[in-house]
Design a protein around this nucleic acid. Structure first.
Lengths: 135, 135
DNA sequence: CAGTATCCCTTGGGATACTG
DNA sequence: CAGTATCCCAAGGGATACTG
């Protein structure tokens, strides 16, 4: 804990911080999973079921090979995707969501809908903010 | 578009990428909002209603003043939080969620629940991954 | 095809010090 | 109290080249 906001020890009437209720592992998981590329890949695999490496990249669109590899590895590590290698030449590798990957995709669904629904309002808020600062 | 996975032009039978259906602005919004600190602050303000600058930091726990300021500014810019300055000495600044901030918090709720529910399974997947690579 | 390795620049993010 | 400003290091992330 190196936070500049740690509660003082004798202030025991203070409400607890998020730490105890949320837990370090959950925070770590959120840190890994609340990521743009993860969300995009989750979405792509959720829509298409099974995709090859290159197909995932094509579906996501604007992603470099490096980030695609890295994000897929992390997702595999966390058990969100299954990776199936067909030992043929040229190589053929399939990716698909696991059960918990699908569940996470479902959980993020609400966030996608939120972003879609309020994009105009967010744009408005940004312009209002700029105008406020300028004026 | 600098992706290495762009569909070739004459392959018009290919399924469309996520780009047209998701949209650049929505992707940008997700990029801003799918962030560990944003999620934690959203959660803190959702639980407590209104908090002062320092209180937000204390509730989040392990956040530096720099990231707290920066994240709160971005959230204000996007219209997720309202910032109310009381012109007194010493300064007093209140933060609270806007309507769309609360909606986003709700949308993220499913992700928190997912992380909470599957943390053991994720830990298991990680250990299995390590063992697979080691063995 | 499905990567890995390298280079190199940008951003994230903590620590510390200072200010109205 | 609620910030800004500065320094500095680590991680993100694109481009290119190479490999089984």
């Amino acid at each position: 804990m190196t936070s500049q906001f740690a509660a003082t020890q004798n202030d025991d009437h203070l409400e607890k911080t998020l730490d105890p209720v949320i837990g370090a592992l959950v925070r770590d998981i959120i840190g890994k999973v609340a990521d743009k590329w993860t969300m995009l890949i989750l979405e792509a695999l959720d829509q298409h079921g099974t995709l090859r490496f290159t197909e995932v990249g094509r579906q996501v669109g604007d992603i470099s090979q490096k980030m695609l590899t890295k994000t897929l590895r992390q997702m595999e590590y966390d058990g969100l995707v299954e990776r199936e290698v067909h030992p043929v030449i040229p190589p053929h590798v399939d990716y698909r969501l696991t059960e918990i990957g699908r569940e996470l995709s479902d959980a993020f669904c609400g966030v996608w809908i939120w972003a879609e629904r309020y994009q105009a309002q967010i744009e408005g808020a940004r312009q209002a903010f700029d105008k406020r600062k300028a004026g």
